[in-house]
Write a protein that binds this DNA or RNA. Structure first.
Lengths: 327, 327
DNA sequence: CTGGCGCTCGAAAACGTTTACGGTTTTTCT
DNA sequence: AGAAAAACCGTAAACGTTTTCGAGCGCCAG
């Protein structure tokens, strides 16, 4: 049924070895015969069988990506970029969704390991030791998580948080609430780090609340605590929580940004679409995805001597939910 | 490096053939030796090499899914379900994003064809003939598109549209605008079909506008046309357009739902989160994804005699953007 | 006692590639 | 022109499995 390398060889009057060479190392065959086999190959619509190739080369031509939740636009953003970059480099992409379950994350990487040349891992919930453990099974690139010894594509969320605080104090705010996401998540720690550094620098009162579920409902809950603490600005862990905050404040008749300013984090599409549009910081999801596969590809054919950590810039997007405080 | 079937055979004092049998067709070996093999295998942590297996069986144990846009929550919703169901059945999932480009869609299926046992295809933009053409390359299941001869998981969007109209006329509306999406897309045709049937049944005035880009900006543009046409209710092609409509109306000081009712389609997360919350119809994305891979798996080991088309129910979600018209 | 059958298992072929090795031709150098 | 070197290409082994075929064995019927 399928057309094999043998068919091409027959049609081009050469051996299978020559066909293989013409396709994978063109410089090894005479231009004349090379074009002959190329012609034969395209005539027959020949596509090499990747399984057979992988069997002997030991490389699969595939990469994997495991994410905690495919319904989360943040991860699908990186997935989209990963997919695009991989396809460009002639790699195919396996995707796995761990459903936020750390043990599933580890399992999935192991299961993928035999079928891919490497995987990019988004695993905010995994223990460091477990990450190292799965790193033994295949080549890893971490996304948005820094760990000595394993390459990573990072986003400067600390810097983004710093920018938010700078923005808020520039507007004149001096008592600010931060609504924590999950305490153990690397993202929350990073954001908090930027927050604290900025706060120390500016001498503002910080009201540190939470942790809350990083969901709409978490925002609803957190909003009340923040107004009870008498703050003029609320920094939410992420956009979804911020949306919850906005909804709760509106329900209680508290005007945004008139009475209180609110910021999110991530710049998901609806941040721009809600009303008032949300001030937030944009994460470079696409370039992070791209560089993650770049790192992986480099890592694969290199002496694995230095472990690159590249950090991408975030960007504060000022929209409608932040103004100077009413005095 | 990796542990092969030969290592297991040596350790269990049997031949490789017996190991293979013990793992894939247990009833063919004596229970005693079977357990010896199994023990050896798990001792060594043996995992069969899928490439080698695929080379000889002709099956890969993988399925593919190609979607027009991974940033679109609709598609990631089905992707998530597809992934989950496939994993359950011990299949791995390749994903490809065509970036809304029909020729890329066809190319991608062809590229995948050799690496997968079948693919679920979301290709609203592809010509029928092209779909048939790619169906020759591998086993296909269509998602949300009906085509004779190829199995499909469908969503009853016509029914959903009918429900919207029923809802609106029940509220008392009698002059309604429909904002078309892309004319050629199967989805738009289906929705329009349901719309027309409901309209004919109820004798209401239908103002048929567009087509518009199925984006936020398309909604901004469409809103003005709808109010100029003096309608009391606006049915948008999808949620994103509806959000654009809401924004534009608010900017113009037209109150929703006071002055005009608005509906969306798809029930994306932000439909529930915007304010007022959007009346829309929920698409069974998850079960569609699940049944798509069920269909694919069934199709793979069956005589391919009848081509199943299963249609899933949609559901009208009444929220805050629809009320009786002011008179 | 013989022939046939069923059960269990091993030897070996096959899947579609890549690549080490060696043989033949062409080029280059003197 | 002749020899050494280089360029080109074919033969065959190898990758890790599955599967066909048949061998060995015990059992039962005749």
């Amino acid at each position: 049924m399928a057309v094999t390398i043998r068919d091409v060889a027959r049609r081009a009057h050469v051996s299978v070895a020559t066909v293989s060479r013409a396709l994978t190392s063109p410089e090894l065959v005479r231009p004349e015969t090379r074009s002959r086999v190329l012609a034969a190959a395209s005539d027959l619509g020949y596509q090499p069988n990747r399984a057979a190739r992988g069997l002997i080369t030991g490389k699969t031509g595939n990469i994997g990506i495991v994410v905690p939740d495919l319904d989360n636009p943040f991860f699908t953003g990186v997935l989209k970029a990963v997919q695009a970059r991989a396809m460009q480099a002639d790699y195919a992409v396996f995707v796995a969704d761990s459903d936020e379950d750390p043990v599933a994350e580890a399992k999935l990487v192991h299961a993928m390991a035999k079928q891919v040349d490497g995987v990019v891992l988004c695993a905010p919930g995994l223990e460091d030791s477990q990450v190292y453990e799965v790193a033994g099974a295949t080549s890893l690139v971490l996304l948005n998580r820094r760990l000595p010894g394993v390459p990573a594509a990072l986003m400067d969320s600390a810097g983004g948080m710093h920018a938010i605080v700078d923005h808020l104090v520039a507007l004149g705010h001096s008592r600010i609430a931060y609504l924590n996401g999950p305490r153990t998540s690397w993202s929350n720690q990073e954001r908090r780090r930027g927050l604290l550094s900025a706060v120390a620098q500016h001498k503002v009162d910080l009201v540190d609340l939470g942790p809350f579920a990083p969901r709409y409902e978490g925002g609803l809950q957190a909003a009340d605590l923040a107004v009870a603490a008498d703050t003029t600005a609320i920094i939410a862990y992420n956009d979804i929580m911020a949306l919850g905050v906005l909804a709760r404040l509106r329900d209680r008749g508290i005007s945004v940004p008139g009475d209180v300013s609110v910021t999110g984090f991530d710049d998901l599409t609806y941040a721009a679409l809600c009303s008032p549009a949300l001030t937030t910081v944009a994460m470079p999801v696409a370039s992070a995805g791209r560089t993650a596969v770049n790192l992986l590809l480099d890592w694969l054919d290199s002496d694995n001597t230095d472990v690159p950590h590249v950090v991408l810039e975030t960007q504060l997007i000022v929209r409608g939910t932040t103004t100077p405080p009413r005095r």
